[in-house]
Simulated assay, not measured.
Amino acid sequence: MYIVVAGSGMIGGVLIRKLIRSKHDVILIEQDKQLCESMYAETGVVAIHGSASDISVLNEAKIDKADVFVATTANDADNLAATILAKSYGVSQLIVRMRDPAYEKAYRVAGANTILRVTDLLVNQMVFEIEKPEVQRITTIGSGKAAIFRMLVPKAARVSGKSVKDITSIRKFPPQCVFIAVYSHKSGEFTIPRGNQVIQEGDELFMISATDDIKAASDFINDTRKKFF
């Protein structure tokens, strides 16, 4: 994915390192020239010195090609302005770091898809929002060690037509992930699945999983390879 990140402080810096390790194309916009140079030297990220609220800087970052824009600077006013501009260029996924809750409504009006408070911000959550937008986390359990989430079974998914028992018996399916409910958009029925419940494409799955296993569960459900093993 092509991702533009504004700000490379403690949060932005860790995020950039993780995204680069995950093989994403990352562009950094940073007002501090020294931080620009140090991030480039450490990670090789394309680093642009300037403000993300400056149109010429956004053009240099090729914001119109971005899949995701993330504003992580320490200034809400700067983050808001940059988010508005990124939205105007057609960026579909906008993630912002919020320090002052008074800005929340403004961020939502600006089109931010995800607003993360500084007090409970986790970099892994930002990476998750970028890489797995199809998964909606409902709530966390046990101080974030587990989570309840939901996702749709995509067209041609290899789990379609398979029972819950068959799916969970596959070695590659995360053992710490459990089906807790299934909503069929076709029939309008909401069920608590048993082992013989058959999953169909278009079904909405509600699952509980260890937080570290959510990505693996999502990858498994979204796999469209024909072979089921």
Score class of each variant (00 low, 15 high):
Y2A: 07
Y2I: 11
V5F: 05
V5I: 03
V5E: 01
V14L: 14
L19H: 09
I20F: 08
K23V: 09
K23D: 15
D25Q: 12
I27S: 05
I29M: 08
E30R: 07
E30H: 07
E30P: 08
D32F: 06
K33Y: 11
K33A: 10
M39P: 08
M39S: 13
A41E: 15
E42L: 09
T43A: 09
G44A: 05
G44T: 04
I48P: 01
H49L: 10
H49K: 10
G50A: 05
A52E: 00
V57W: 04
E60W: 10
E60A: 13
A61Y: 05
A61I: 03
A61Q: 03
K65N: 12
A66S: 09
D67F: 08
V68W: 02
A74D: 14
A77T: 12
L80H: 06
A82P: 00
L85Y: 06
Y89G: 07
S92E: 15
L94C: 02
I95P: 01
V96A: 03
R99S: 12
P101T: 10
A102I: 12
K105F: 14
K105R: 13
R108W: 07
R108P: 02
V109W: 08
A110W: 02
A112N: 09
N113Y: 05
L116R: 04
V118N: 12
T119P: 06
V123I: 11
N124C: 04
N124A: 06
Q125C: 02
F128A: 09
T139D: 04
T140Y: 15
G142P: 08
S143T: 13
S143W: 06
S143R: 15
A146M: 13
F149Y: 14
R150P: 00
P154C: 10
R158T: 07
V159L: 08
K162M: 10
K162T: 03
I167A: 06
I167T: 04
I167N: 06
T168M: 14
S169N: 11
I170F: 10
F173D: 04
C177A: 14
K186R: 11
K186A: 06
E189A: 12
T191W: 02
T191G: 06
R194T: 14
G195H: 07
Q197W: 08
V198A: 06
I199C: 03
E201V: 01
E201A: 03
G202W: 00
G202S: 07
G202A: 07
D203W: 00
D203Q: 00
L205M: 08
L205I: 11
L205S: 05
F206Q: 09
M207K: 09
I208F: 10
I208V: 15
S209P: 01
A210G: 11
A210M: 08
A210C: 08
D213C: 11
K215A: 15
A216S: 13
S218W: 05
D219K: 11
N222E: 14
N222W: 10
R225D: 14
R225H: 13
F229Y: 13
F229L: 15
